[in-house]
Simulated scan of single mutants.
Amino acid sequence: MEDRYSITEFISASKQSERKQGFFELETPRMLEVNLDGLVWSKAGSMIAYKGQIKFEREGMLEHGMGKFLKKAFTGEGSSLMKANGTGQLYLADQGKKITILSLNNESITVNGNDLLAFDPAINWDIKLMRKVSGMLSGGLFNIHLSGTGLIAITSHYEPLTLFAERGKPVFTDPNATVAWSGGLQPGFVTDVSLKTFLGRGSGESIQMKFDGDGFIVVQPFEEIYLSQQS
């Protein structure tokens, strides 16, 4: 019998790390450990395990104010938040997507609402509506603008790629493959008539995000199709 396939070897290779180096820690590339001593906000349904005394609660309808409640209702936004409060180790994941931890230092970033896994309660956030495309893409698009100082965790299908835009040298992306962009960028939207003709008027590729300014854009090698777009 080969020792490399033994249960002991499997446990040794996959067991939890006890580094506890910070608030957020990558237990694996697709699993986030939160060393909790207080509060953290995370994507609803992302908890896969925990140790310690932790209480979970969905965000209240008006917990973040009437303005954000109305935006969530308007967008039909499906990425509700979950509040975890207590002391212990919390493990989060989202459909096996790769997790990236970012430390904001009085900085800002905008993240696709479906790709935000967790964030420090010290971070300020707001929902940004993409009104111009709400009629083009079924279900529309919503994004979350995060700013301040603290940790956030975002997800992507497979390895993300960061592109850089310059004023006068824009970057164009597929909305369903766009994960995040630097806070100073304001995306526009363009419709490619030739692609519409070639691929059919319902094709997502006919609508592109345009980033014209100084900043970065994070994309993934995957087009994320939301349930509202499939119906």
Rank of each mutant, 00 (worst) to 15 (best):
E2I: 07
Y5F: 14
T8D: 13
E9V: 13
I11F: 10
A13K: 14
Q16V: 14
Q21G: 14
E27M: 12
T28N: 02
P29M: 04
R30A: 09
L32Y: 01
E33D: 01
V34C: 05
G38N: 11
L39C: 07
V40Y: 04
V40P: 06
W41T: 08
S42M: 14
K43Y: 05
A44N: 13
A44Y: 08
I48G: 10
A49M: 12
Y50C: 10
G52P: 06
I54L: 07
I54D: 04
F56I: 03
H64I: 01
H64N: 07
G65H: 02
M66C: 00
M66P: 00
G67L: 00
G67H: 00
G67N: 00
G67A: 00
F69T: 05
F69L: 03
L70R: 01
L70H: 00
K72A: 09
E77A: 09
G78V: 04
G78H: 04
S80W: 02
M82D: 03
K83F: 01
K83N: 09
G86A: 08
Y91R: 11
Q95T: 08
Q95I: 05
T100M: 02
T100P: 01
T100N: 02
L102T: 01
L104K: 02
N106K: 10
E107R: 03
E107P: 03
E107A: 07
I109T: 08
T110Y: 02
N114F: 09
L116V: 10
A118T: 02
A118K: 02
P121D: 03
P121M: 03
W125R: 07
K128T: 13
L129W: 02
G135I: 12
M136S: 15
L137C: 12
L137I: 15
S138Q: 14
G139C: 14
F142E: 05
L146K: 02
S147F: 01
S147G: 00
S147Q: 00
G148R: 00
T149Y: 02
L151D: 08
T155W: 09
S156L: 13
H157P: 10
H157E: 15
Y158M: 15
E159Y: 12
P160C: 12
L161W: 06
L161V: 15
G168S: 06
T173W: 00
T173D: 03
A177I: 11
A177V: 12
T178L: 14
V179A: 10
G183C: 08
G184N: 14
G184E: 13
P187N: 10
F189D: 06
T191K: 12
T191F: 10
L195K: 13
L195W: 04
K196E: 06
K196I: 03
T197S: 04
T197A: 06
F198S: 09
R201V: 11
G202Q: 13
G202E: 13
S203A: 15
G204Y: 11
E205Q: 15
Q208M: 15
Q208P: 09
G213R: 03
I217F: 05
P221R: 08
P221H: 09
E223S: 14
E223C: 13
I225C: 06
Q229Y: 06
Q229G: 09
Q229E: 14
